[in-house]
């Protein structure tokens, strides 16, 4: 990437984020619902309400409110959560790592599973198993993440209770962590008992988020592989004595992976969106779960902070996707 195109991208990202900020700010103030009404105790006087309104800056005009909010965000102050009465930035820093670990784990799971199934299906493409794979995958494609979540709760939480139903970690071992990246930290510090505990908590949400993505990856990659496998270079490599497995992995996969990465990037942003509902179902303490509470409580500063974080995540994922696509396609080196 040249310096120019890098600068261009950063500028575009900033403009996009600003747009997101404007839309969310306006939308939140247009839709009905009053955050102050959620806070006051019954029987509070008009003066109390007005004082509270002034304390949170809600007595100002919309543009002024936006200007105040924007300038403080730029200086690193995301405001104070109305419902939790805590600094928004602090809350985000506490919860974001949980969601990042969950989304990353779901992504890794989906990519590995998708590639394994697509490659296996390609190796079996001339057998009777091939239509079976397609049919099963079609079925998986049709099931959204929250349905998986509910089904998993029913199967592994209720009927066959092998996995913990909710949360991120056994509360007793929570104290020993220096960061909020529990999975990463336990792995790096070789605390395998904690690692196992965290992994067990993550299995169901990861499955719920990852399975739909895995079936999309499978579908796209399998089609791209089938297209590559009829090319002349595959035939020539076969004549040179390459095994079928190696043909798929070394010759075809590298040309089929490009479109798959591009699509996975887009779908991964949907997966991040899916964390909202899936975290809720498994009472997983990430920003998605927090977003639902924030909306219910009309916690304007917290919602705005959360939406900005989600927006930034989407932009980062798209940037990373573009970089990966270029890295895997020698024709796009620039």
């Amino acid at each position: 990437m040249t310096a120019y195109s890098f600068f261009h991208r950063v500028l575009m990202a900033a403009i996009t984020l600003f747009g997101v900020a404007v839309i969310v700010f306006v939308l939140l103030r247009v839709v009905p619902g009053d955050p102050i009404a959620m806070m006051i105790s019954p029987g509070a006087s008009e003066a109390d309400i007005a004082a509270l309104r002034a304390q949170y800056g809600l007595d100002q005009s919309l543009p002024v409110q936006f200007w105040i909010w924007l300038t403080s965000v730029l200086s690193g102050d995301f405001g104070t959560s109305i419902s939790l009465r805590r600094d928004v930035l602090e809350l985000l820093a506490e919860r974001l790592p949980a969601t990042l670990e969950l989304a990353a784990a779901a992504l890794v799971f989906a990519v590995v599973l998708g590639i394994v199934i697509a490659v296996t299906a390609t190796l079996l493409s001339r057998t009777k198993l091939s239509p079976l794979v397609d049919t099963l995958n079609g079925l998986f494609l049709a099931v959204p993440d929250f349905v998986w979540a509910l089904a998993l709760v029913l199967i592994f939480g209720v009927l066959l209770p092998v996995f913990p139903l909710s949360g991120r970690i056994n509360p007793d071992s929570q104290e020993g962590f220096a960061t909020q990246f529990y999975l990463l930290e336990s792995l790096l510090t070789l605390r395998f008992r904690d690692l196992a505990d965290i992994s067990l908590h993550m299995i169901m949400p990861v499955l719920a988020l990852g399975l739909p993505l895995a079936s999309i990856i499978t579908k796209v990659l399998k089609e791209a592989l089938a297209e590559a496998m009829v090319q002349d270079y595959i035939l020539l490599a076969r004549l040179k004595g390459m095994s079928r497995l190696r043909l798929v992995l070394q010759e075809a996969l590298r040309n089929a992976i490009g479109p798959t990465i591009a699509l996975t990037g887009v779908q991964f942003t949907f997966l991040i969106g899916g964390t909202v509902i899936v975290e809720r179902i498994f009472a997983y303490p990430g920003i998605g779960n927090m977003a639902i509470d924030a909306v219910i409580n009309r916690d304007l500063p917290l919602i705005q902070g959360l939406v900005l974080v989600f927006g930034a995540l989407f932009i980062l994922v798209n940037l990373a996707t573009d970089a990966l696509v270029v890295a895997f396609n020698p024709r796009m080196e620039a």
């Binding site: 090319q231 002349d232 270079y233 035939l235 020539l236 490599a237 004549l239 040179k240 004595g241 070394q250 010759e251 590298r254 040309n255 895997f328 396609n329 020698p330 024709r331």
Partner: peptide, 20 residues
């Protein structure tokens, strides 16, 4: 095949793997 009998293909565009 490939050793004693080799092939020069019709279209060198598709006969080389674009990714290698």
């Amino acid at each position: 095949m490939g050793s004693d009998i080799a092939l020069i293909p019709q279209d060198p565009q598709t006969a080389l793997n674009p990714g290698r």
